[in-house]
Amino acid sequence: MDLTLARAEFEFAAVAKDARVAYGLWLVTGIFGGHRFYLGDTGRSVAMLFTLGGLGVWTLADVFFVGRRVRAVNRERRAAIMARHGIVEG
């Protein structure tokens, strides 16, 4: 493996989000948007915090979207890191 690629993969591993952690936060702090804070969705997190998860509606809906959001966040972070290292993925 190329040293640059190894360095980029190591950097990504340090910032990658884990779906199990996100679901655990959803379970414990979902109504306050804890899982959204973890994923970096600050605006939605604050909205959930002040509306108690949209009176629970957003919190319940998020059970179906947390896994997809984790994958999207990780995909975006990986692409940004690879681009910063000059690695183009196909």
Rank of each mutant, 00 (worst) to 15 (best):
Y38E: 03
I81M: 08
F12I: 14
I87E: 03
G43V: 11
L39W: 08
G43C: 00
L25W: 10
V57M: 07
F50V: 15
A8C: 07
T29S: 15
S45T: 04
D62T: 07
A72L: 13
V57G: 01
A13F: 05
F12Q: 04
V70T: 10
R71I: 02
G67V: 04
Y38T: 01
S45W: 15
V21A: 10
F50H: 01
A83Q: 14
V21L: 10
D18R: 11
A79G: 03
L3S: 13
I31Y: 12
V28K: 09
F32L: 15
G40V: 03
I87W: 03
L5C: 00
R84Q: 12
R78I: 05
F10Y: 08
A8M: 06
A16W: 09
L55V: 14
G24D: 05
R75D: 13
A13Y: 05
A79M: 08
M48N: 11
H85R: 06
V88W: 00
A19K: 14
A13G: 08
L3R: 13
T4G: 00
R20I: 01
L5R: 15
A8V: 05
A14V: 13
A72V: 07
A47D: 00
F37E: 00
A19L: 00
T29D: 05
H35L: 05
R71T: 12
A47M: 13
R84M: 07
Y38L: 04
F64E: 02
F65A: 12
R77S: 11
E76R: 15
T51G: 03
A61C: 11
G30S: 09
G24V: 01
R78P: 08
T42S: 05
V21T: 15
F32Y: 13
G86Y: 07
L5D: 05
R77P: 01
T4I: 14
G40T: 03
G34R: 12
F37I: 01
V63R: 10
Y38M: 04
V15S: 04
H85D: 04
M1D: 12
R75F: 10
E89V: 12
E76V: 09
M1Q: 09
R36W: 06
G30R: 07
I31D: 02
F64P: 04
A6D: 11
G67N: 11
G40L: 04
R20Q: 11
G24S: 06
R68M: 11
G90R: 13
T42M: 11
A79P: 02
K17M: 07
L49R: 03
A83F: 04
G54T: 09
H35W: 07
L25K: 09
D41R: 14
A79H: 12
R68I: 08
M48I: 00
V21Y: 08
V66T: 13
D2V: 04
T51R: 05
L27R: 06
D2L: 02
Y23P: 09
F32Q: 02
L39V: 02
L3T: 10
A80G: 04
G67S: 14
A61E: 03
